[in-house]
Design a protein around this nucleic acid. Structure first.
Length: 847
RNA sequence: GCGAGAGUGGUGAAAUUGGUAGACGCACUGGACUUAGGAUCCAGCCCACGUGAGUGGUUGGGGGUUCGACUCCCCCCUCUCGCACCA
């Protein structure tokens, strides 16, 4: 093939061809036709994709479907490198799956409700809707500029009433099913955000959004009964091989199932009973006292009139203050106080003093714990501090009981009446059974998971479709009255308090049941409610008959591949799983789980830490795209690290990617006259032609394997770089082989860098669209090596190498190895003990 | 404290079932072409010794299994993430 050489000079005069070996193999140019003008190319193809609606999809029963989804962004103003990485990974998969013959759903939308909009509105004296919509317009343009292949016809913005009205309907559906309830309880309050947070939104004791310490507060709020699904949410995790173990583990832990028993202890001189939950009913004969939470509702009654009453009240007050002061990491020293009352162990009738203890949590179990200091470390420490009895009832199989700690391991029961001698696991069942038979206990499973509190005291969210009638009490809004529109004519004050709370035109309404005066709920829903079902809405985003059109949902769902940050391992991913199950039970969906495969991509970091404005290490995608083009930015993000790992941003690395694309462009452009040649390789080839042909097929194989194997795009790209290195140096190869190699490179790289590939595809004379091209297949025969390098080891150390034809027998290899000069040199001393031959790999001679 | 994951050149990272450690990049060094080079091309590039051929060492540290270990087992160190007295 001929190489055209131009110099890259300001005067633009080509220099003459030089015959020496230093002659550039790749032409350099600023000639208009050969310059990689990424800006023009990218704009051109983006317009074409948009004008031709290339990525618009519909339900086509004749094709296998593939639903690819990336976590939709919050329209904060501009996209950041994390978005770019997330969406690039997704786009590669979407384009790749299309080439593999799938009908690919690849939608995009906006998680558009939320606090930043409201705060920005207060600060700039504008409206959250305006701020949000402007951000969406800007960011959408940024995404277009990246060349992502979305079906924009399915775009969804959750702040649109067309979206949230169905969420309100669903809220009512859940209310009617008893899966929504209202209660007064201690909630997590974030003062700067002026709102309540769900447990999942409290990270290390602080607000997930503003990082401010969360304080307890007594409040009324609406709850989703996610705990009704705790068992299913947990059990299904065992059946989700497409999710990373890390996420499965985190969810298991969060749901936190404990199997045990609840047992009622009678209170002395009272008709009331004190129920406890324990995972160790086998140790009940070792209970020597009772611990209850300072917030326990019976505490007041237990201490009233006793000598200890004053002390108890002081203790409760002090504990509350200490908890408020404490930091997340602090474990308070165990402390407690005798209440003055006793309860009775139902198995022994022993009197157990009841203590209020600061380490007992009211939110878990029953808020009361039977204390077995011999077999629980916390109780042990407490007993030591207050001089309470320690009574061992489990004997370890071997060895003695520890003298200065609780023994929490297995063993046989001792001093436990008729259960003595029984293995403790068997005793758990036997003791629970007896308690149940006698009517003072039962087997019980307790979860760590709490119900999801979704009331938010802010404005910019979906109104909760409930009201309180003066006569009928709490009522859902009538379906016919939906949506409950979020009013737009509102005035904000600097405090952040929601204008809805004082807006009579909004909250003043009538009861759908009796027509009397009623007050609307003025809290709005947690924005995580919107993101818990958007993936379902994308299947039929304009459907006016409900949340989803079931036919479309049945075709597309579940999501085949979901991609997003691991920070949502619990929050969003747990809520979405719950929503899918609840939607199924209401009758909107038929699936059990929303996301078959989950890819949690790593963070984009720079200088060792996550990019953030406060650290001043952010890289702006716009600047990069302007400087290098979208394809280069995409390529670098894919090449620098595998998707699940953190990506260290490196400006010089971006240069490298840019260089590679320029080189590719120049090379293909220089060879684009090679149009007439058939793109099929000839059957018998030799020399450089054979070498290039083999490398091409090997690259298809390697690339296809790596993309299927956890989307390891970084090694995919290196394999194409290797092919390019061969392609640009083997200038004696037959034009048809070169042509085939070039076509292959373009097809392989297309999902990653679609603009340049589309351009080169056309430049090389193809009339069909690359967007609908099939993924290249490789010929295993053509990929086969003729010769192999066999390593010769002596005692495991590499001493020599042999070039042999493929298929050389083990015997031959052995002979050749022993005949090798370099081997002889090493075999001077000692007899050969053994020779290990690994076919096509190595010969190891042990002396 | 409990749970999960990770430690490989100057650097980002590669290494089928245990079988040539460091592919592919970046940075760096030398050279070519140049008025110039931040473009492009050629070459070198794990460490130590040696002009060289070569020799020895090297995947956080220490042991083990094996003909052979980045890979498997045990102990230790460091880092990251999740959980936070869950009875």
């Amino acid at each position: 093939m001929a190489f055209i050489c131009y110099s890259f000079r300001c005067d633009n005069k080509p220099y003459s061809l030089q015959p020496n070996s230093l002659q550039p193999k790749i032409p350099m140019t600023i000639d208009e036709t050969l310059t990689y003008d990424f800006a023009a190319i990218e704009t051109k193809w983006q317009s074409e994709w948009q004008n031709k609606a290339t990525f618009k999809v519909s339900e086509d029963q004749s094709l296998p479907k593939y639903y690819l989804l990336e976590m939709f962004p919050y329209p904060s103003g501009r996209i950041h490198m994390g978005h770019v990485r997330n969406y690039t990974i997704g786009d590669v998969i979407a384009r790749y799956k299309r080439m593999k013959g799938f009908n690919v759903l690849h939608p995009m939308g906006w998680d558009a409700f939320g606090l930043p909009a409201e705060n920005a509105a207060i600060k700039h004296n504008t409206h959250p809707a305006k701020w949000t919509l402007e951000n969406i317009a800007y960011m959408k343009n940024q995404l277009r500029r990246m060349g992502f292949s979305y079906d924009w016809d399915r775009e969804v913005a959750t702040c649109n009433s067309d979206y949230y009205r169905w969420e309100q309907q669903f809220f009512i559906d859940l209310y009617n099913k008893g899966l929504v309830y209202r209660k007064m309880t201690t909630v997590n309050w974030c003062e700067p955000c002026q709102t309540v947070l769900a447990n999942e939104q409290v990270i290390e004791g602080a607000c997930w959004r503003c990082d401010h310490k969360v304080m307890p507060r007594e409040m009324n709020g609406w709850f989703f009964k996610i705990t009704d699904y705790a068992d299913e949410l947990l059990a299904e995790l065992d059946n989700m091989p497409g999710w990373p173990d890390k996420v499965l583990t985190m969810q298991r832990h969060w749901i936190g199932k404990s199997v045990g028993a609840s047992i009622d202890f009678a209170i002395e001189n009272s008709s009331k009973r004190l129920p406890i939950f324990t995972t160790r009913p086998d140790t009940i004969f070792g209970a020597t006292f009772m611990s209850i939470a300072p917030e326990h509702p019976l505490l007041d009654e237990l201490c009233r009139g006793t000598a200890q009453e004053e002390q108890v009240r002081t203790f409760v007050e002090e504990t509350r203050n200490a908890k408020q002061r404490a930091n997340y990491e602090d474990v308070l020293d165990k402390a407690g106080v005798f209440t003055g009352s006793y309860c009775l162990n139902p198995f022994t009738n022993e009197r157990l003093p009841i203590y209020a203890a600061n380490f007992v949590l009211m939110e878990y179990g029953t808020g009361a714990v039977m204390a077995v200091p011999a077999h629980d470390q916390r109780d042990y420490e407490f007993a030591c501090k207050y001089g309470l009895a320690i009574k061992p009832v489990i004997q370890p199989e071997s060895g003695e009981l520890p003298s200065n700690a609780a023994y929490e391991g297995p063993g046989a029961l001792i001093d436990s009446a008729e259960f003595s001698g029984i293995d403790n696991e068997a005793a758990k069942k036997a003791i629970t059974a007896k308690a149940a038979a006698k009517g003072f206990g039962k087997a019980q499973t307790t979860f760590r998971l709490r119900d999801w509190g979704i009331s938010r005291q802010r404005y910019w969210g979906a109104p909760i479709p409930m009201l309180t009638c003066e006569a009928c009490g709490i009522q859902p809004v009538a379906s016919a009255d939906l949506p409950v529109l979020l009013p737009t004519d509102v005035q904000f004050d600097q405090s952040g308090k929601s204008p809805l709370h004082t807006m009579e035109s909004f909250f003043s309404t009538t009861c759908p049941r009796c027509g009397g005066r009623a007050r609307r709920e003025t809290d709005t829903m947690d924005t995580f409610v919107e993101s818990s079902w958007y993936y379902a809405r994308y299947t039929s985003p304009r459907f006016q008959g409900g949340m989803v059109d079931m036919a479309a949902a049945n075709y597309w769902l579940p999501v085949d591949q979901y991609i997003g940050g691991v920070e949502h391992a619990i929050l969003h991913l747990l809520y979405s799983r719950f929503f899918t199950k609840a939607m199924r039970d209401v009758g909107y969906l038929t699936i059990d789980e929303p996301f078959t495969n989950l890819l949690t991509q790593g963070m984009v970091i720079k200088d060792g830490t996550k990019m953030s404005k406060s650290k001043g290490n952010v890289v702006d995608p716009d600047t990069l795209v302007k400087q290098y083009g979208a394809d280069t930015v995409r390529l670098f993000g894919l090449f620098a690290a595998p998707p699940e790992r953190d990506l260290e941003w490196n400006d010089q690395g971006v240069e490298g990617s840019s260089r590679f694309l320029s080189k590719l462009y120049r090379f293909v452009a220089a060879n684009s006259s090679n149009k007439q040649t058939e793109a099929t390789p000839e059957t018998t080839l030799d020399g450089e032609s054979r070498l290039l042909q083999r490398k091409t097929h090997q690259t298809i194989q390697k690339f296809s394997t790596d993309i299927e194997n956890n989307f390891h795009f970084n090694t995919c790209i290196s394999s194409v770089m290797e092919l390019m290195n061969v392609l640009t140096t083997q200038d004696q190869a037959h034009p048809s082989v070169v042509r085939f190699a070039i076509d292959t490179v373009i097809k392989l790289l297309y999902p990653m860098v679609p603009h340049i590939c589309a351009e080169l595809w056309r430049m090389t004379g193809h009339s069909e669209s690359l967007d609908t091209m099939a993924w290249p297949a490789f010929d295993p025969e053509a990929a086969k090596e003729d010769e192999l390098t066999i390593v010769i080891q002596i005692c495991g150390k590499v001493r020599s190498r042999l070039q042999v034809p493929v298929g050389t027998s083990e015997e031959q290899l052995k002979e050749m190895a022993l005949a090798d000069e370099r081997v002889e040199k090493y075999l001077g001393q000692g007899p050969i003990r053994k020779i290990i031959v690994v076919k096509d790999k190595l010969v190891n001679i042990v002396v």
